[in-house]
Design a protein around this nucleic acid. Structure first.
Lengths: 347, 347
DNA sequence: CATCCTTACGCAAACGTTTGCGTGTGGAAA
DNA sequence: TTTCCACACGCAAACGTTTGCGTAAGGATG
């Protein structure tokens, strides 16, 4: 088993100094053409690859980006990662991904681990627990050590840094508006508990749309779901015998679960009830009926986040204290879970 | 902006040597209790964290595991990653994830990048292109440099290393058997082109089950889909006016698409046609009807793969030349896309 | 008072790079 | 023959750790 070959070994074999080898490989004209060729041939033969670790230590940068997300098994986050990877690889950066599993402690551990030498900067979306605890010392500490952080999706207002978000409220408003525009008047919302920032924002957008239409918001049309894993029974209870003609769900799971429950309760989508979800994932696309939904353009978010981070990483220190918030446009993807515009509902 | 504090800085502040600081932090009894306490207090105050990069260089190991998968936006792979992360974190390892995007070149680049200092070992599932090209030099080279590799799911028989797989053929056979046992006789299969190892194996399992039932396999019941992204039209053409009573699909997407197409063509699932998929993903669980499917237990695969790798990484060199192949049991998850056992089909 | 042991610390090498600068060799010019 | 300059290369420091070993100081012992 041949070990990894180092400059030192090449130097010994060729009976020159380490620095000569290093310079030869870099085509330094300080070294004679002859030696250069010999060294390069040898290096190729032994498949020499510079040791990243040593380079990182020397250069004081790792050329890797740390990404920390709440859940790895989640379509939206993986699309974001896809975007990050795309630009990172283009620019010669590595990507390390860790999931916090929505645990504050794991988020802290991961961040500290990566911060102590493994990554130059971070792209992160905070864990539920972190949002609940409102303890951001780990993020602030990382930043104060000079490592840039880009927050995305689930951001924290109190932290001053680059951010990439969608306008959750606006997206929700657009969705609700669409429901209103196709004639729905009794629109329920399936949302999360308030401490999830995006859930709250989407709820606000929903309310705003309603008010703009002079529709009085009803407490009993709002369901805040705590236990995501068991949302079906909650939704079922909520929907039973409720007189509604549309549902806006703040995520994909709530949307399909709603359709399922409606089906069981004998209501047809979209004939009796129109449903709009949030996030354009696998489910929305392939469900029957396919779901009208608000697309967050996850890959774009990842791309923008990575660009922001790399700009900061490579930027002249001039703009380093300048923070930007990028807002990605959402778009409404109309599919089959909502009635067509102009169709005349006679229920 | 305070910079990251190093041993050297602490040493200077406290007017002792670097080695004293290092030893003090490790509670070496070579250092007086007094000094130890002073150093530790100071380190805590300045939030000293040893630099991982320097440690990696010194110890010649990074304590990180590289995971390379064909697609990051893929439920099965993310569950595997979840499993890997679980045991890796338990054992103090970091996890770096890269996706090859099913490209041979990207797989090579990622592997080489990680191999040159960023990771101690690899868990990987090869890209489609790699399977097609049958070029495995990058993997063999990595191994010959002393870095252990664990292959999972899409493995390569020619490479001798640890492997974690499911018995694809057996899983497919079980699924097909189930269809046969509920009375289906005209069973079609939706599969991939042959060079995808798992697709081929699953097809074999399907054929085996058929033969065991003395059912003659029909060429026209087998659809090998090339362009996954546009499978709907292929499936639609294939299914049109075909007299079948069951479909076995080698993945989730094919399965739901089949249900969709059947629906359009006026056949009901499971009443007219029973459908079984492969992989227990989001879609199978939430689709209407929910899909009977073969679960691959992705998280278990990840757990086993990580254990194999870490064993090799930390193992006494005794067993290092011994390679194991772990076969994870699949299980058939019965849901609503197949008729119940014993129901009397009269079609 | 000389010797010895313990205590408490520092030195230096090593991990694999990069790079500014110093230096020996050779040939050409004076 | 002397002087000078290019050329081609090596030295050493630096990045931040760890750790075996050497050693100064001080007290205890003979």
């Amino acid at each position: 088993m041949k070990q990894k070959v180092t400059l030192k070994q090449i130097a010994k074999e060729l009976d020159v100094s380490i620095s000569t080898v290093s310079k030869a490989l870099k085509d330094s004209k300080e070294i004679s053409l002859d030696t250069r060729q010999k060294v390069k041939a040898f290096a190729r033969l032994y498949n020499y690859k510079p040791n990243n670790i040593a380079l990182s230590l020397k250069n004081r940068k790792t050329k890797t980006i740390g990404v920390i997300i709440p859940e790895i098994v989640h379509h939206f986050f993986t699309t974001v990662i896809g975007g990050v990877e795309k630009v990172a690889n283009e620019k010669g950066y590595n990507v390390i991904i860790c999931s916090s599993n929505n645990s504050f402690d794991k988020e802290v551990i991961n961040l500290e681990m990566l911060a102590s030498g493994s990554a130059d900067g971070f792209i992160l979306s905070v864990a539920k627990e972190t949002q609940l605890k409102k303890d951001y010392h780990h993020i602030e500490e990382t930043m104060s050590q000079g490592m840039p952080v880009v927050l995305f999706d689930r951001i924290i207002d109190e932290i001053v840094c680059d951010k990439v978000i969608i306008d959750d409220a606006k997206g929700a408003q657009t969705a609700t508006n669409h429901l209103l525009s196709i004639g729905c008047k009794k629109i329920a919302i399936l949302t999360t508990v308030d401490y999830i920032s995006v859930g709250k924002l989407r709820t606000n957008g929903y309310l705003r749309a309603l008010r703009a239409y002079d529709i009085f918001e009803k407490e009993e049309f709002i369901l805040k779901i705590e236990d995501v894993d068991n949302c079906e029974s909650e939704i079922s209870d909520f929907l039973r015998d409720k007189d509604i003609d549309a549902i806006f769900a703040v995520n994909e799971l709530f949307a399909v679960t709603a359709v399922k429950v409606l089906d069981i309760q004998g209501k047809r989508v979209p004939h009796d009830v129109s449903v709009i979800g949030f996030t354009d994932g696998i489910l929305s696309k392939h469900f029957i009926p396919s779901l009208t939904t608000v697309s967050q353009h996850g890959e774009d978010m990842g791309i923008r986040a990575a660009k922001l981070l790399i700009d900061k990483l490579e930027g002249d220190d001039v703009a380093i204290e300048e923070y930007r918030t990028v807002i990605i446009d959402t778009s409404l993807i109309q599919r089959k879970s909502t009635k067509k515009m102009g169709s005349n509902p006679n229920n």
